[in-house]
Nucleic acid binder design. Structure first.
Lengths: 119, 119
DNA sequence: TTGACATATGCCGATATGGACATATATTTC
DNA sequence: GAAATATATGTCCATATCGGCATATGTCAA
């Protein structure tokens, strides 16, 4: 078996930088494929393929509008990613606090040493 | 060019389910490789390889302890992922609100129709 | 030194990837 | 119907992936 398919879940889908950019471009308003391709400066087929992945994991919806297909963000699929990563928020904050404490200790130590030298 | 290397950034690193589990197991306390392998029910070499990826993107730190190598979580690398996905939080909430509005409109319409039928 | 234990790495195989290109499909316009 | 436009898809390529297995490396203990 190789790597899990990108189409398997949102985690894999957003691992691709271009796809992350597509999702960001779709914030607020829906857009046709060509507009996305131009904005990303990538070919139209490539854009369509990224959109297909995003469609398959449910991060975008399509709407036919004449000749065009308008893609819209459906951010709900990002909730699992959000939940997962939020579960780590305390840990990087905690690390930050530990670092602060460490720096304080260092400063205290320096202070003590300085005093020792004076005696 | 093929798919972006998993070692390139945190987004790719956490796209792998086993690696996400490793990070979750490392919440709170550091663990040696074999313990992780047993917990995940995967082979030790596979575990070591996942840990290597996590090490290279800076999501874990290693500490030698005699025969063992203790891996510890370094969650700071998850901050970019957090920031990115938080930027979409409003959108799934917004969708939720839109759904609510839609339901309200439906109820209003039903109410109006009900009244119309009465006349 | 030898052996037991813990971990990392190298190689192989099957597969999925992202990109480029050509082309199929669908819609609008003339 | 034919041309123009918008999009999707199929094929080919180079490469990276994850997994298994064997094995190298490193550490401790007798």
């Amino acid at each position: 078996m190789a790597r899990a398919a990108t189409t398997s879940d949102a985690f894999n889908a957003v691992a691709e930088p271009q796809r992350r950019r597509i999702l960001m471009l779709l914030k607020g308003r829906e857009r046709p494929v060509n507009e996305l391709a131009r904005a990303l400066r990538i070919t139209q087929p490539r854009t369509s393929k990224h959109l297909r992945v995003l469609r398959e994991v449910g991060l975008v919806r399509v709407r036919e509008s004449g000749q065009q297909r308008l893609y819209a963000l459906d951010a709900r699929g990002l909730e699992p990613v959000h939940e997962w990563v939020v579960g780590f928020e305390q840990y990087w904050n905690e690390n930050f606090e530990r670092l602060n404490e460490y720096v304080k200790k260092l400063q205290q130590k320096e202070h003590t040493d300085g005093n020792r030298n004076k005696h």
